[in-house]
């Protein structure tokens, strides 16, 4: 009895999941390989002509290889800002977890504020302009790092709490200073949580649309999300190219998902429950 009900339930769940979640993604793939005429019908059908390569080349060549430039930009943005977040965030989390001082309360408050408060965009632009960083890649990198820092600190702090203090003391007795202690002893132990933070934050930064829109205007240094958005207005009728672009942008998160599924899940739930 229970068995049969479970099979029935499983069947319903699988069918529902296909309709709700698989069909939209299949729709992206199918539309991306159709020719323009068939794609404009917007229906869910098998492509008459497979134009995978042709559409790919068209998208890549559009507007002077804009997509390639955007992918390079997005990669630089993601790698550098996540690297900054990881190193500086783990340093903060280390001291925050280990040492109670008069700063602890303030730092905790700022970390939580960073999670809750929506960034004030125009004043941020004003600050960036004063620094000469507005509409430059370094500016956007620092902005992403600043906005993502809180989440990293929370994850790192929770993990550092599980590392025994005796380890620190042993290192100190062996003559390690604060820098050596952190970078040679503690940081290597954080490997698993670093993987989590890197994966989760890379996906977040890579998929971010709002901050590049505000802080990195202009076509020449657009990120992939901006290019996709601009595509949608430019290629209003060429749905095959639009969906090819969506497909391309979905690939990096998909790779992350296939390789790091467990890490992502661990990071998102851990971070969420602590936050």
């Amino acid at each position: 009895m229970t068995f049969r009900r479970n099979y029935l339930l499983s069947f319903v769940a699988i069918v529902a999941s296909i309709v709700v979640f698989v069909v939209p993604f299949a729709f992206i793939v199918l539309t991306a390989v159709k020719d323009q005429q068939q794609a404009s019908l917007l229906d869910f059908s098998w492509p008459r002509h497979w134009q995978l390569v042709q559409n790919f080349v068209d998208v890549v060549q559009a507007r002077d290889y804009m997509v390639i430039i955007a992918f390079i930009n997005s990669t630089i943005l993601t790698v550098v800002s996540v690297a900054i977040m990881v190193i500086l965030g783990s340093m903060v989390a280390f001291v925050l977890q280990r040492r109670k001082s008069r700063w602890t309360g303030l730092v905790n408050f700022l970390v939580l504020s960073g999670l809750i408060i929506p960034p004030a965009v125009v004043p941020t632009i004003w600050v960036l302009q004063k620094l000469g960083l507005f509409s430059t890649m370094p500016g956007l990198i620092l902005v992403e790092a600043a906005f993502g820092m809180s989440f990293c600190i929370l994850l790192f702090r929770a993990f550092i709490a599980t590392i025994p203090r005796e380890l620190d003391e042993a290192a100190i007795i062996d003559g390690a200073g604060p820098m050596r202690l952190f970078f040679r002893v503690i940081l290597p132990l954080l490997r698993s949580v670093i993987v989590t933070v890197v994966v989760v934050q890379s996906v977040t930064v890579f998929n971010d649309f709002t901050y590049p829109l505000y802080f990195l205007p202009g076509d020449q240094n657009a990120t992939v999300q901006l290019t996709l958005y601009n595509f949608s207005s430019q290629f209003g009728t060429e749905y095959n190219l639009l969906f090819m672009n969506i497909l391309l942008i979905t690939i990096p998160p998909l790779i992350m998902f296939l390789f790091f599924n467990r890490r992502i899940v661990a990071g998102m739930t851990a971070g969420a429950i602590k936050g």
Partner: peptide, 19 residues
């Protein structure tokens, strides 16, 4: 202390200035 408060500084600068 082996846990130097200077560790806060780089993050604090980025966070302070841009957030």
């Amino acid at each position: 202390s082996p846990y130097s408060n200077w560790f806060y500084l780089p993050a604090a600068i980025i966070y302070g200035v841009l957030f």
